[in-house]
């Protein structure tokens, strides 16, 4: 593992058993059903940078975030954080150490804060869990500092979450995430539940904090414009697999994978310059994904090989792309 990478994910697999109950299955002679939410995903994140995963709903990007956070036990593959393999770590103190350095910001500002807790207790929970305060006063001092740091006032700690707007709650979530002094933040659609004008405030806060504290972000979003604003590197996901990993500049100027291209074309254009071409069809059911390259039924460049053989990531300049058409120089 290279020194500069804070996170390396290798061949991550996350399968879920979505079979109906045993008796139903027996009566209808149904086989077990497995949802391959993430199927062999590899990427790494450089310290201090932002790596983003983008894709449509059901592509598995949130599952990756939760697996990296340790909320799911991966079916296969390795998650290596700071040289420690989270997937195989058994030692309690090691796990505690890893989890202190890694925090998460969730999508819904309403569900991610316990409604029965005061804001100061919500923010102090990680401080208490990792014993980062010498005493109560030290703890309050840290909490007040965090509140001010995210743009709230120190006295807001006495209030309950319902007294805040969506944007303010997301600030509270960020303060809580920062309270264990992490190096690495997983941000799962942190602004998609917010109004645009508030979204800009939160994104600005996140970039400012990254500069100030040298944070590394794993950023999940479905919004390509937000991704473009936040990221250094971008991974495009489709049905549990990554189809392209590329530096930000390349993605928008030189998209290689047909799915990436079509996704870029499907974004509504505020300036009304070009007429966008809607992408054909919809994301297939991930329980029964298409054969070969899972994108082939919607792909204008698909041929026989695409229907049968699954493409693997290959290197093209700074990017990695998994596409037969790119490999064969057909596009």
């Amino acid at each position: 593992m290279s020194e500069q990478n804070i996170l390396e994910v290798q061949g991550l697999k996350m399968y879920f058993d979505v079979s109906p109950p045993f008796v139903t299955r027996l009566l209808n002679r149904m086989p077990k059903q497995v949802l391959k939410a993430v199927d062999g995903l590899s990427f790494s994140i450089e310290r201090g940078k932002t790596f983003s995963l983008v894709g449509e709903s059901g592509c598995g990007k949130s599952t990756v975030a939760r697996a990296v956070a340790g909320l799911y036990t991966p079916t296969g593959g390795d998650i290596i954080i700071d040289g420690q393999n989270l997937a195989t770590a058994k030692d309690r103190s090691k796990i505690t150490d890893i989890s202190r350095q890694m925090q998460m910001i969730f999508q819904s500002p309403y569900a991610s804060l316990d409604p029965r807790w005061r804001v100061r207790d919500i923010i102090a929970e990680p401080i208490r869990a990792f014993k980062l305060a010498a005493n109560k006063e030290d703890e309050w001092r840290q909490v007040e500092q965090l509140l001010v740091q995210v743009g709230l006032s120190a006295s807001d700690g006495e209030k309950y979450p319902h007294e805040f707007s969506g944007g303010q709650r997301q600030r509270i979530s960020i303060a809580r995430a920062l309270s264990s002094k992490p190096e690495f933040l997983i941000c799962d659609e942190p602004t998609s539940a917010l109004d645009v004008s508030v979204q800009a405030q939160i994104l600005n806060l996140m970039t400012a904090l990254q500069d100030e504290l040298g944070l590394t972000y794993l950023f999940i979003s479905h919004d390509l414009a937000v991704i473009d604003h936040m990221s250094d590197w971008i991974g495009v996901m489709y049905l549990g697999r990554v189809c392209e990993i590329t530096p930000k500049s390349e993605l928008f100027s030189n998209p290689r994978h047909p799915y990436t291209r079509l996704l870029l074309e499907a974004i509504p254009d505020l300036k009304g310059r070009s007429h966008r071409k809607p992408l054909k069809g919809e994301v297939p059911n991930p329980i029964t994904p298409p054969s070969g390259c899972t994108f082939h039924p919607r792909c204008p460049y698909a041929n026989e090989r695409c229907k049968q053989e699954q493409p693997v990531l290959g290197e093209y300049g700074p990017s990695q792309v998994a596409c037969h058409a790119v490999e064969e120089f057909r596009i």
Binding site: R66, L71, T96, S99, M104, L113, R116, A129
Partner: peptide, 26 residues
Amino acid sequence: RKDYIAAAKLIQTPTAAIMVRHVLPN
């Protein structure tokens, strides 16, 4: 299923503590 439970799991809160401190009051 709510994320504040996930947030508590994330910092290695023991399951019993999650049930008493977070689930019970709610």
